Simulated assay, not measured.
Amino acid sequence: MANAMMVIHPYRDQGDWVFDDAAAGLTREPFVFGMPEMIDIFVKDIPDAERGFKLYFSARPFPRFTAELSWLREEYEGNWYLWEKTGMEGWLCPALFKYFDKAPEKIYCKAEAGRTV
């Protein structure tokens, strides 16, 4: 069974938001198609977020989550999510399945200062 609460440490690499997760076999895994713009909003109040920050996420609500993403549809083995508060849509690639057995109906997120690269 996967953890109920997960954390990754995204950072900017050559202008792109990426993250590493050795346990999941991911190195410089990029966020694409709407997700970078969402991340820009997540981190707007975090100094030096480009050098790295903590991104907590879960399929269940947790204390002080700041974003709720709702599943929209599957496309090209990835999944589109809507951040209703902003009207923004973003695509999560199949790396999502390194953390979830299936695409969750909701993903709850919170960004905070942490680790720098």
Rank of each mutant, 00 (worst) to 15 (best):
94 P>H: 06
82 L>E: 06
24 A>G: 13
54 K>T: 03
94 P>T: 09
113 A>S: 04
85 K>T: 15
45 D>K: 13
107 I>L: 04
21 D>N: 15
53 F>G: 00
30 P>S: 09
34 G>H: 03
50 E>Y: 06
33 F>W: 08
103 A>Q: 06
94 P>S: 08
46 I>W: 04
3 N>F: 11
6 M>D: 02
70 S>V: 14
101 D>N: 15
112 E>N: 05
92 L>Y: 04
58 S>Q: 06
15 G>I: 13
28 R>A: 13
66 T>G: 10
116 T>S: 04
94 P>Y: 02
30 P>I: 02
51 R>H: 13
28 R>Q: 13
75 E>V: 14
103 A>C: 11
78 G>A: 11
24 A>E: 09
12 R>W: 07
4 A>I: 14
3 N>R: 15
11 Y>D: 08
83 W>E: 01
71 W>V: 09
5 M>G: 01
19 F>R: 08
15 G>D: 13
68 E>I: 10
75 E>P: 11
78 G>N: 06
104 P>V: 10
96 L>F: 07
92 L>I: 15
116 T>F: 05
116 T>P: 02
79 N>H: 14
89 E>C: 12
50 E>T: 07
114 G>M: 04
52 G>T: 05
5 M>S: 05
46 I>S: 00
38 M>T: 08
109 C>L: 15
100 F>M: 10
24 A>I: 10
113 A>M: 02
55 L>F: 07
35 M>Q: 10
104 P>R: 07
5 M>V: 03
37 E>C: 05
32 V>F: 02
42 F>K: 00
8 I>E: 00
22 A>H: 09
59 A>N: 10
81 Y>R: 03
45 D>G: 06
11 Y>R: 15
97 F>M: 06
70 S>E: 12
19 F>H: 07
87 G>M: 11
50 E>I: 08
43 V>Y: 03
12 R>T: 10
115 R>P: 02
40 D>K: 10
114 G>F: 02
10 P>I: 03
56 Y>A: 08
111 A>G: 07
56 Y>L: 11
97 F>A: 00
42 F>E: 00
30 P>Q: 00
10 P>H: 00
27 T>F: 08
13 D>F: 11
17 W>I: 09
14 Q>H: 15
44 K>H: 13
39 I>T: 06
88 M>C: 07
81 Y>D: 00
